[in-house]
């Protein structure tokens, strides 16, 4: 993104599942300064929850690692969210993003996390390297407020 954000924040937390709720609430309260509509807030909260849960469940399957979330907001009401881990990474990103694909079906996972992110946000980008980690970028431009 070339322009300068009007505000930004960064948070780092360990991959305890308690932090799923905390992190989506933190992002939602940060973007509240743009005065988003209720359905925009719930779309963003759900997408963030998917990204964070993936880091907690998949990136560090047998240990506790760290998740970093960066949020930037722009004058044109664009919200930019990056969720990053230094976990196991994804071998085949294209396959991982296919709806219904999951590497842990026995844990009652639907394999729809990426599908939810894609349907609730304008743009989803995934960069990943095996044994290095994964960064998921979520972008959504909020609707203009009616005067």
């Amino acid at each position: 993104m070339k322009r300068k954000p009007i505000n930004k924040m960064k948070m780092i937390f360990p991959t305890y599942s308690e932090n799923e709720r905390f992190s989506r609430s933190a992002v939602s309260s940060f973007i509240s300064q743009l005065d988003p509509l209720l359905d925009e807030i719930s779309d963003i909260k759900t997408a963030v929850s998917e990204g964070v849960t993936n880091a907690i469940v998949h990136a560090y399957p047998d240990s506790i690692g760290e998740v970093t979330i960066e949020v930037k907001i722009y004058t044109d009401r664009t919200v930019y969210i990056k969720i990053k881990d230094k976990g196991c990474g994804i071998e085949d990103v294209k396959k991982a993003m296919e709806p219904l694909f999951t590497s842990s079906p026995d844990e009652e996972r639907a394999g729809l996390g990426f599908a939810v992110m894609q349907s609730f946000m304008d743009k989803v980008t995934v960069r990943s390297r095996p044994a290095k980690g994964t960064a998921v970028t979520l972008i959504k431009t909020l609707r203009e407020k009616e005067q």
């Binding site: 759900t46 998917e50 996972r109």
Partner: peptide, 13 residues
């Protein structure tokens, strides 16, 4: 009050 894809897994199961 909130549901992500974990809720789909829950209902599917």
């Amino acid at each position: 009050t909130f549901m992500d894809s974990s809720g789909i897994g829950l209902v599917m199961g």
